[in-house]
């Protein structure tokens, strides 16, 4: 018995380690490449330097690209969360004719191949005569991200007793007071997760941006373009920065969520 347990534990640990290496080694390689003094990556790294990181931070072009990515991600976050919150309530709470169809339709875009979705939207923008720019990319991202965020928030809606809203209404609340005093505070954890999802999915999206940003460029687009032509270690440097930024956001988000929960259950 003891021996089989040991074997099983060893297998679990071995597998876990393998997965971790597969997932995180490429990211570590990217970081390593960005600290390489020479222009082209070779292993082992002969001479380390932070020159390319400095150049990346100082680059005006990269500054604009980062600004575009942040703008797109922020707008996508705000719009998606508002639409998804009310969508999730309609999705999970209220019973109305056509609800089942709506539940299916709203989730469908998640399964569309994104390059096809991007191309379709580019053609659509052209057809109605809209000039593509980072603002059309906001719309394109939302087509894919709103369903995801709706799903995340809907899980929270399913998780709380609808009689809480009825009780608030019964105790004298107007519809707006019910929303402010009961519904939104209880949905808060779901909304918070939804916000993180929306920002990070937009931040890392490549296929939709490629078709719909027009002359503007986001971080993933720039990384791709420079890989195709004009590689410098600024590519892995920016890639590593984008990854670290996302990780920091996730960490901060998790921390805020935990603090709020701790205060609520104090």
């Amino acid at each position: 018995m003891a021996i089989t347990h040991k074997r099983r534990d060893a297998a679990i640990w071995g597998w876990t380690l393998f997965v971790l290496v597969v997932v995180y080694l490429p990211i570590a390689c990217g970081a390593l490449a960005s600290f390489n003094k020479s222009r082209y990556f070779g292993f082992p790294v002969k001479q380390y330097s932070t020159d390319w990181w400095g150049k990346t931070v100082d680059s005006i072009e990269i500054g604009m690209i980062v600004k575009t990515s942040i703008s797109v991600a922020l707008l996508v976050t705000v719009f998606s969360v508002v639409i998804a919150t009310f969508g999730a309530l309609a999705f999970a709470r209220y019973d109305w004719k056509g609800r089942r169809l709506y539940q299916k339709l709203i989730l469908l875009p998640i399964f569309f191949p994104q390059p096809v979705l991007g191309l379709a939207m580019l053609l659509g923008f052209n057809a109605v005569g809209i000039q593509t720019s980072w603002m059309t990319a906001v719309f394109a991202h939302m087509v894919w991200i709103v369903p995801v965020v709706t799903l995340v928030i809907a899980i929270q809606v399913y998780g709380f007793d609808p009689s809480l809203e009825e009780a608030a209404f019964d105790l004298g609340c107007s519809r707006l007071q019910v929303l402010r005093e009961v519904t939104l505070p209880l949905l808060w954890p779901g909304i918070w997760s939804g916000m993180l999802f929306a920002f990070l999915l937009s931040w890392s999206n490549f296929p939709l941006s490629l078709y719909t940003t027009g002359a503007d460029s986001t971080i993933p687009e720039w990384l791709y373009a420079k890989m195709v032509a004009g590689y410098t270690p600024m590519v892995p440097a920016l890639g590593t920065m984008a990854t670290l930024g996302a990780a920091a956001l996730l960490l901060a988000g998790g921390l805020v969520g935990m603090l709020v929960r701790r205060r609520a259950t104090a």
């Binding site: 209404f169 009961v182 505070p185 209880l186």
Partner: peptide
């Protein structure tokens, strides 16, 4: 219900957990 001078104690009690 919010305009009636009546109040319901729910089976689930419906206490606000937050």
């Amino acid at each position: 219900p919010n305009k009636r001078p009546t109040c319901l104690v729910f089976q689930s009690l419906a206490l606000f957990p937050h």
